[in-house]
Design a protein around this nucleic acid. Structure first.
Length: 1019
RNA sequence: GCUCGAGUGGUGGAAUUGGUAGACACGUUGGACUUAAAAUCCAAUGGCCUGAAAGGCCGUGCGGGUUCAAGUCCCGCCUCGAGUACCA
C-alpha cells in the first residue's frame, strides 16, 4: 500500500524536489561553464551585476536576469558557445553606512549579503557561469581598476590622431617643440611654451603642466558636495538637486579632486551611438547629457582694459543685437571689474546667491534677479559700450559662465532686459518684438547689423565667425554640456587610489605592486580635521624603497610618502567588469589578448534604463580609452542593449481627508485636503511608541495589528475599520492630535477639487497644493476620515511593498516564477507585480507535466505523430523562435499554453513530438524540462540539445476559412480551397446564401478578393 | 517648457508587411466531482437591442482624413507616464 502511494507521488509534478535536484546537478557538473576557445560561434549575454544590498532580491530584480537567461539558454540550443556570467558591484554606500552605525567591517556585511544573493539567485535556476564571478571589492579585482586608473593617468588625448596616446610621447614633443604644435584636449589654463622654456622648468613645474593634459587629473574644481553624506557626488548621482541616495541637499564647493577627462571623448561617445543597437530613449538621453551645440566663442574686451570676457553663443548672427552682457555671480572677473559705486550691491548679490542651494535656484526659475557691475564691455565690431551685469540665470558651470545678451533673440535675455529697463534693439527684418523675443533661427533675416544685413541665420553666422577670426576676437566652436567626471569620493568603502604624494605632486605606484589594499581603520567617519575616512588609518604611507604600504608615522618625505586618502566612486569598478568576465582569473592582465580577441564584446546586455547617463556612459568612455591604448579590439562594449521595465510593488496608503481646511491667513474655510501617508516603517514606529494607547482601542490580536500597520491591509475592510476606529478613538481620548509629518511620512498631498470653493485653490494643481501646504499650517479639527488605498510604485524596503522571489519559488517553483515574470507583459514595459495571475502559469506547468506523466506513469511512446500533432509542434517552434529573437517572451508563454492545450486535446503521446517540445520550453522552464528530458530516457543535460528545426511542410494547408466581409465588416466565414482562382472565389462567395441575405438584392459595386487572406464585398 | 514613450474588455495583455479586434491568462458566473473544502474538469463571459436563439447596432483616448479595408498610415487635439531643465 505504502509503495503504491509513493509511486503515485512520484508521478505528480513535485517542483520543489525537481528544482533542487537539477540546480544541484548543474552546479556539480558545471553545465554552464564557458570555455575561452571553441569551434562554436561565441555569444555573450550579460546582465547588469547587482549591488548586494542587505534587503536581498525582490521579484523585480530577476526580471532582466530571467530574460537574459532564456536568451542564453536558447543560444546554447542553437549551437553557440555562450558566455553568461554574474558578479557583484560590491563597493557602495549602504555597507559603509552600516559600518558607521555598528562598527561592522563593510567587507563582512558585503560578504553576508553576497551569500544571501547567491542563494536567492540559485533558487531561480539561472545558467550563470559562476567560475567567472567578479566582485568589485575584491582586491584581485580592484587591482585592475587601479591599473586602468594608472593607464588613464599615463595618457593624454591627441585631437590630431583622435585617440589617447601615452604621456611619454607628449613629453618628447614638449622637449623638442614646446606645446605650440600639440593638438590636445587639455585644461584651458595651459599657457603656450617653447621647448627651451619646458626644459628649463623644474620637475614639479613640469608635472603640474602634464597634469593638465592627463586623462585623469588632480585639480581644484567646483564640485557637488553633499554634507550629509560627507562626500562629493558626480552629476549623475544628483537627482532634482538632491543626492540620489538618501535625498540629501547638495552644495557647490571648490575642492581639489581627481577627475576623469571624459570630455575628451564627447564627440566619439556621440558618434559611437550610431554604431550600436541600444534603445532610442537611452541614446537620446546620452545625446542630451553630452549636449553638443555648435556656435562661436567670442571675446569682448572690458572697456579701457586688457581684460577679456569670453562667451559662447549659438547665435553669432545676432551679435549686433547685443545690448548687455551677463556674468554668472561666480565669474572670476566680477570682483575685478565692478566699479566702486556698484561694489556694495554686487557683493551683496554674490553673497545672497552663494547662500542659495542648487535646489532653491532651480525651484524659482521665474524670478529675475541681477545687478549692474558698473563696468562696460566693448562691442567687437561697433566698439559701442555694453553694460556688464551679473545674474544668476547665467550658470558658472556651462560654457564660459558669461553670455552676450541679445534680448530680441533670446527670451531669458528679453525678460531680463524688460525687468531692468535695458534697451532691446531689433535686428530682425519684419519681426515684432514688442511682446517677446524672436528665437526662430530658421526664419531669421538679419537687419540693422552692418555687414550681415539681409542674410539668413546660416550665412550671417559664417560671415560673423570669419570676421571675428580676422580681428582675433573669436572663432567657431562646438560646446558640450558634458563635464569632466569627478572621480574622488571621501568614503572608506571604495577602491583606494594607487597614488602617493611627493612634494604635493601625485605619483603612481608601479603596476607590479598592485593591488594597494584598503587599510584597516578604527572608524569609518571623516577624521577630526575633516579628512576622508582613510585619514584614520595608521598604516597608510608608501615606502618607495621596499614598495610596500607602511605606518604613517614613518613618513619622511624622502623615501616614505603619504598615500591618497580619497577612494574611487561606485562607477569605477563597473566600467570594465564585462571585459574582466572574459578572463576573470587572469593575474597578469585585466583580460588577456586571446580571451578578448575571442569574446570581443557583449552581444546582448540587459539592464535598467536608470544607468543611462552614469554607468553606461562611463563604461563606453573606458572602453574607448582602452581601445585607443590597444588593450581592447572594439570601441563599443555592447552591441545590443535592452532596458527591462521595472516591476512595481503595491504600497498601502492611508488617506486622511480633512474637509475643513482653514487658511491661517484669512481664516477662510477653503476646502478639503487629502493626506496620503504610506503605511510603513514610521507608522510602525509610532505604533510601537504608543503601543498601550493602541491596545486599548484596537481589536484583534497583536498579529493582526502588526499586519495592518505593516501595510498588508490592501482593501480588507476588517483591517480598515480597525485602523479607522483606533485612530478616531485615540484622537478623541487624547485631545486630538492627528499624526503629522513626524509620524506619518506624508508622501503626497492633493486636493479633492470637488469641495474647493476658493477660486485660487481651484486653479492650482496638486503640485501647487504641495507647495502651499509646506508654507502654511494646516489646522485639523478632529473630524477626519481615514481611508486606505493601494498605490503602485517602485519596490522598496522602506515602502513595505516588497515581494520576495524565495516565497514564490517555495509556493509555486522557480519555473513558475520565471514564466510568470515573462507572462506579465513586454520586457521593456514597467508593470505592477500582482500574484493574481500566477495560478494560470502554474497550472499550465502541471498540464504540461501531465502531458508526459500522469497518475499511471509515463504516457509517451514511440507512436507516429499525427498530422495535427506535427502541425501543433511546428507552429509552436516557429512562433517561439520568432518570439525569442524579438525578445517577445510574454507571447511565447501563451504559445506554450496553446500548444499544451492542443496536444492534450489531441491525446498526443508521441515522443517525436514531446521531445522537441521539452527542448523548446527548456529556456523558460529549465527544471521541468530537464526532468522530462531525463524521463524521456536521456542521460545528458537538455542544456545543449539542438533546438528543433521548423519545417514549413507541416503547416501547409489545402483550404482556408475565408472571412467574408461586407464594406469591411466581417459577416461570415467560408471554407474554400487555397488553389482556387480569384474569379472562382468571387463566384463562390456571390453564390452563397448569406451573401444574398447581406445584399438583399443589391448588386455589389466591387468585390475585393485577396487570395489566402480575405474577401470584401463593396456595395 | 523641451525630449521620448504610452492610451485596446472588469484586469494583465494579444493582433507579422493595413486584411476575422480582444489570442493567452486572471477574475466573474453557472455546472460536474466531494459530507464539505481544496484541487481538478466542463461551459459562458466587450457593450447594447430582443424573452431566448437567429439576427442586428456600437466598439481600440477624442475629432477629421486616406483606403475596398485602419488598433495599425496621415493631420489636429486630449490624457497619463518617464527623462530633462535658466545649456546661452
Amino acid at each position: 500500500m505504502r509503495l503504491i502511494n509513493e509511486d503515485i507521488r512520484a508521478m505528480k509534478y513535485h517542483f520543489n524536489e525537481i528544482e533542487a535536484k537539477w540546480q544541484q546537478y548543474w552546479a556539480e557538473n558545471q553545465t554552464f561553464r564557458a570555455e575561452n576557445h571553441s569551434e562554436k560561434p561565441k555569444y555573450y549575454v550579460l546582465d547588469m551585476f547587482p549591488y548586494p544590498s542587505g534587503a536581498g532580491l525582490h521579484v523585480g530584480h530577476p526580471l532582466g536576469y530571467i530574460a537574459s537567461d532564456i536568451y542564453a539558454r536558447y543560444k546554447r540550443h542553437k549551437g553557440f558557445n555562450v558566455l553568461h556570467p554574474m558578479g557583484y558591484d560590491s563597493f557602495g554606500l549602504p555597507a559603509e553606512q552600516y559600518a558607521i552605525q555598528t562598527g561592522q567591517h563593510p567587507a563582512i556585511t558585503t560578504q553576508a549579503n553576497i551569500k544571501r544573493y547567491r542563494e536567492q539567485l540559485d533558487k531561480i535556476g539561472f545558467s550563470f557561469d559562476w567560475s567567472r564571478e567578479v566582485r568589485t571589492s575584491d582586491p584581485n579585482y580592484y587591482k585592475w581598476t587601479q591599473w586602468i586608473f594608472i593607464q588613464l593617468f599615463e595618457s593624454w588625448y591627441c585631437t590630431e590622431h583622435n585617440s589617447a596616446l601615452p604621456i611619454s610621447e607628449l613629453v618628447k614633443i614638449f622637449e623638442t617643440f614646446g606645446n605650440k604644435t600639440v593638438n590636445a584636449i587639455c585644461d584651458e589654463t595651459v599657457e603656450p611654451f617653447t621647448a627651451e622654456e619646458w626644459n628649463a622648468l623644474s620637475w614639479k613645474e613640469q608635472q603640474e603642466i602634464l597634469l593638465k593634459y592627463r586623462l585623469t587629473y588632480l585639480a581644484e574644481t567646483e564640485v557637488n558636495w553633499c554634507p550629509a553624506l560627507g562626500t562629493v557626488l558626480a552629476n549623475d548621482e544628483i537627482v532634482n538637486g538632491v543626492s540620489e541616495r538618501g535625498g540629501h541637499p547638495v552644495v557647490r564647493k571648490k575642492m581639489t579632486q581627481w577627475s576623469m577627462r571624459i570630455t575628451a571623448y564627447a564627440q566619439r561617445l556621440l558618434d559611437g551611438l550610431d554604431t550600436i543597437d541600444w534603445p532610442q530613449p537611452l541614446k537620446d538621453s546620452q545625446t542630451n547629457w553630452i549636449g553638443r551645440s555648435e556656435g562661436a566663442h567670442v571675446e569682448f574686451f572690458v572697456k579701457d582694459t586688457e581684460d577679456k570676457i569670453a562667451v559662447f553663443t549659438t547665435r553669432p548672427d545676432t551679435i549686433f543685437g547685443v545690448s548687455f552682457m551677463t556674468l554668472a555671480p561666480e565669474h572670476e572677473l566680477v570682483a575685478k571689474i565692478t566699479t566702486p559705486e556698484q561694489k556694495e550691491a554686487v557683493e551683496a548679490y554674490v553673497e545672497a546667491t552663494s547662500k542659495r542651494s542648487e535646489r532653491e535656484r532651480m525651484a524659482d526659475v521665474k524670478t529675475i534677479s541681477g545687478v549692474f557691475t558698473g563696468a562696460y564691455a566693448e562691442h567687437p565690431f561697433t566698439k559701442e559700450p555694453i553694460p556688464i551685469w551679473i545674474g544668476d540665470y547665467v550658470l558658472a558651470s556651462y560654457g564660459t559662465g558669461a553670455v552676450m545678451a541679445v534680448p530680441c533673440g533670446d527670451q531669458r535675455d528679453y525678460d531680463f532686459a524688460k525687468h531692468y529697463n535695458i534697451e532691446i534693439p531689433n535686428i530682425f527684418e519684419g519681426v515684432d518684438i514688442s511682446e517677446e523675443a524672436f528665437a526662430d533661427k530658421e526664419n531669421t533675416i538679419i537687419a540693422n547689423s552692418d555687414f550681415i544685413n539681409g542674410l539668413n541665420y546660416k550665412e550671417a553666422t559664417t560671415k560673423v565667425i570669419e570676421k571675428l577670426e580676422a580681428i582675433g576676437q573669436g572663432k567657431g566652436k562646438i560646446n558640450y554640456r558634458l563635464r569632466d567626471a569627478v572621480f574622488s569620493r571621501q568614503r572608506y568603502w571604495g577602491e583606494p587610489f594607487p597614488v602617493y604624494y611627493v612634494d604635493g605632486v601625485p605619483k603612481m605606484i608601479e603596476a607590479k605592486h598592485l593591488p594597494i589594499q584598503l587599510p584597516e581603520v578604527e572608524k569609518y567617519l571623516p577624521t577630526e580635521t575633516g579628512e576622508p575616512p582613510l585619514g584614520n588609518a595608521t598604516v597608510w604611507a608608501w615606502d618607495t624603497e621596499n614598495n610596500i604600504v607602511v605606518e604613517n608615522d614613518k613618513i619622511d618625505h624622502k623615501t616614505i610618502f603619504p598615500l591618497e586618502l580619497n577612494t574611487m566612486p561606485g562607477w569605477a569598478g563597473s566600467s570594465y567588469y564585462f571585459n574582466r568576465y572574459m578572463d576573470a582569473d587572469n593575474q597578469e592582465a585585466f583580460v588577456s589578448k586571446e580571451a578578448v580577441d575571442y569574446w570581443q564584446d557583449v552581444d546582448l546586455y540587459i539592464g535598467g534604463s536608470e544607468h543611462a547617463t552614469g554607468h553606461l556612459l562611463y563604461a563606453r568612455f573606458w572602453q574607448q580609452f582602452l581601445f585607443d591604448r590597444g588593450f581592447l579590439p572594439v570601441e563599443e562594449f555592447a552591441k545590443k542593449l535592452i532596458n527591462q521595465g521595472m516591476i512595481l510593488g503595491t504600497s498601502s496608503y492611508v488617506h486622511i481627508i480633512e474637509p475643513r481646511f482653514i487658511d491661517p491667513e484669512d481664516g477662510a474655510t477653503t476646502g478639503s485636503y487629502e493626506f496620503h501617508a504610506l503605511i510603513g516603517e514610521n507608522l510602525v514606529d509610532f505604533y510601537k511608541q504608543n503601543v498601550r494607547k493602541f491596545r486599548d482601542y484596537f481589536g484583534g490580536t497583536e498579529e493582526t495589528q502588526e499586519r495592518v500597520l505593516r501595510g498588508f491591509a490592501e482593501n480588507e475592510l476588517e483591517y480598515f475599520n480597525l485602523l479607522v476606529n483606533s485612530f478616531k478613538s485615540i484622537a478623541k481620548k487624547y485631545g486630538y492630535e492627528l499624526p503629522t509629518n513626524d509620524i506619518f511620512p506624508v508622501r503626497r498631498v492633493s486636493m479633492n477639487i470637488e469641495y474647493v470653493e476658493n477660486q485660487k485653490l481651484k486653479e492650482s494643481s496638486a503640485k501647487d497644493a504641495l507647495r502651499f501646504t509646506r508654507t502654511q499650517n494646516i489646522i485639523f479639527d478632529g473630524n477626519n476620515e481615514l481611508t486606505l488605498s493601494p498605490e503602485v510604485e517602485k519596490m522598496s524596503k522602506s515602502k513595505y511593498n516588497v515581494v520576495n522571489p524565495d516565497d514564490i519559488c517555495e509556493d509555486y517553483g522557480a519555473d513558475t516564477l520565471r514564466m510568470y515574470e515573462m507572462f506579465l507583459g513586454p520586457l521593456e514595459q514597467a508593470k505592477p507585480w500582482n500574484t493574481a495571475g500566477i495560478t494560470g502559469v502554474h497550472s499550465f506547468l502541471k498540464k504540461l507535466w501531465k502531458l508526459y506523466i500522469d497518475d499511471n506513469g509515463v504516457r509517451f511512446d514511440d507512436s507516429e505523430p499525427t498530422k495535427d500533432n506535427l502541425k501543433t509542434l511546428h507552429k509552436t517552434i516557429k512562433k517561439v523562435e520568432e518570439d525569442i529573437e524579438n525578445f517577445s517572451f510574454n507571447t511565447s508563454v501563451s504559445t506554450f499554453m496553446i500548444c499544451t492545450n492542443e496536444l492534450t486535446a489531441q491525446k498526443c503521446t508521441s515522443k517525436a513530438i514531446l521531445e522537441p517540445l521539452a527542448i523548446l520550453i527548456s529556456p523558460y522552464a529549465p527544471h521541468i524540462a530537464e526532468e522530462l528530458w531525463q524521463q524521456l530516457g536521456h542521460s545528458e543535460s537538455i542544456a545543449t540539445a539542438n533546438f528543433p528545426t521548423f519545417e514549413e511542410k507541416h503547416l501547409v494547408e489545402s483550404s482556408k476559412e475565408y472571412p467574408i466581409s461586407f464594406n469591411g465588416k466581417m459577416r461570415f466565414k467560408l471554407e474554400l480551397p487555397l488553389d482556387m482562382s480569384k474569379e472562382d472565389i468571387e463566384a463562390a462567395v456571390m453564390a452563397h446564401e448569406k451573401t444574398q441575405a447581406q445584399l438583399q438584392g443589391r448588386t455589389p459595386k466591387k468585390v475585393i478578393v485577396v487570395p489566402g487572406k480575405i474577401v470584401n464585398v463593396v456595395g
